[in-house]
Design a protein around this nucleic acid. Structure first.
Lengths: 233, 233
DNA sequence: CGACGCTTTGACACAACTCAACAACCGTGG
DNA sequence: CCACGGTTGTTGAGTTGTGTCAAAGCGTCG
């Protein structure tokens, strides 16, 4: 699909110059296009994972369920991100994925992925780099939940989301579309949905940030970053 | 060092059969042996990371500091685990490491690591697998802090630690040595040190687990797993 | 129109934090 | 030898942040 942006190639390209063969290999990996309706699940926890997915468009979240029915959202992959890559390597999936909007993904078989590692070692390193980058985000998330208050954590979350979206051209300086409702935010931030509501009200009343009609608007970036203890990298 | 266990080779060996050359390559990576005193730091956050380390013996923790002085411990790497591998790939270190006891590590240069990926693509995949396994632990940690109560979280932490230590032969069914004090536990579990003390008291009074004189003793594994919602993999 | 998904608000309960003090243990140096 | 400070663990009292329960408002869509 030469007429479409290859988000994955763009991302890996920031790590190293890609050769023509490598670019073609990535394109080939993403030939398939599977559409999923909002609410559909991609992988079930515990299920053996033969497939990884590359997100092309839409919003998904990865999460784990607890025995008591609680849910913790781990991450919100964006277009160009790999989903379920770890399942392929560990040979057993350890979390589930849920489509939050209608999405398009490409699926990649585990065996094909291993072939790529053998055939294009540099691509393997680049994919490892991307995986490391994702893990760094999970770590930041862990720090947020472990050591930041609800409002700091929420502010930090939106700041990080804003930066990631800007990198793929889905956000401008002041605002971006964000289809996450308060229940989803709660499961991501380790809070109750009701408390998320209270925190959002505080952010609104302090004139820092507003979430309204699936749209996030940042009113005062400087103060918001100060509140969140947000570090640019 | 043929007279010493190669923890790293043992670990990667559970992922795939290693050839003689691959085993030798791993051994060569670990020829250097650097001793560090308890309390020393391995990598500073923000510092450019040219070196990764492979832990040979002792206890370390990886952590991030917050602007307000708070600390969140991310993980406790055990012998055979790589430390700072992500710094090498991201080319900028994103957390720090601290030696909790006297430790021995081997250092590996970033460039050497990349050579290995090119020369032994299968080793690259195995290292990616190990990194994925570590990330799965971080994810489990995230779930704990986000969605488990203090006592569930603490119980879960010790159960996971126990399993990991048993894999490398450093724990038996009932007990294991654990040099972590209550301040360190607090920073790992996202609690205050004082609350850790209260939680440990509860675990003791319920006759589930005791931490005394740097030794963890499990009194009732079944009940402890039930409390923690602990899933074997 | 009613049903449903999502948001908002209030009252109350409880988990976890903070502050303050003390106890036990260690190695060190007078 | 004992006094000493430093580190770690223990406990109580009071505060605060966040969760729970209950109810109502508001769009949208069938």
């Amino acid at each position: 699909m030469p007429h479409k942006t290859d988000h994955l190639a763009k991302k890996l390209g920031t790590f190293m110059q890609l050769s023509e063969q490598e670019t073609e290999c990535l394109a080939a990996l993403q030939r398939s296009a599977i559409s999923l309706k909002a609410g559909k699940e991609l992988v079930h926890e515990g299920q053996t994972g033969h497939l990884a997915y590359i997100l092309q468009s839409g919003w998904v979240c990865s999460f784990k369920l607890l025995p008591d029915g609680g849910r913790q959202i781990i991450a919100f992959p964006l277009p160009g991100d790999c989903v379920g890559l770890r399942s392929v390597l560990l040979r057993t999936s350890d979390h589930s994925f849920s489509a939050l909007t209608d999405v398009v993904v490409s699926s990649v078989e585990a065996s094909r992925m291993m072939e790529v590692f053998n055939e294009f070692p540099r691509l393997g390193a680049a994919i490892l780099w991307a995986a490391s980058r994702d893990e760094a985000m999970v770590v930041e998330h862990l720090v947020s939940i472990g050591r930041r208050t609800a409002i700091e954590r929420t502010a930090h979350f939106f700041l990080e989301l804003s930066e990631r979206l800007r990198l793929v051209g889905l956000a401008d300086d002041k605002e971006f579309a964000c289809p996450l409702n308060q229940y989803v935010l709660a499961d991501a931030l380790g809070l109750s949905a009701i408390h998320v509501n209270r925190v959002l009200r505080q952010l609104r009343e302090r004139k820092l940030l507003t979430l309204k009609e699936r749209m996030v608007t940042v009113h005062d970036m400087r103060k918001l970053k100060a509140l969140a203890g947000f570090q640019e990298q």
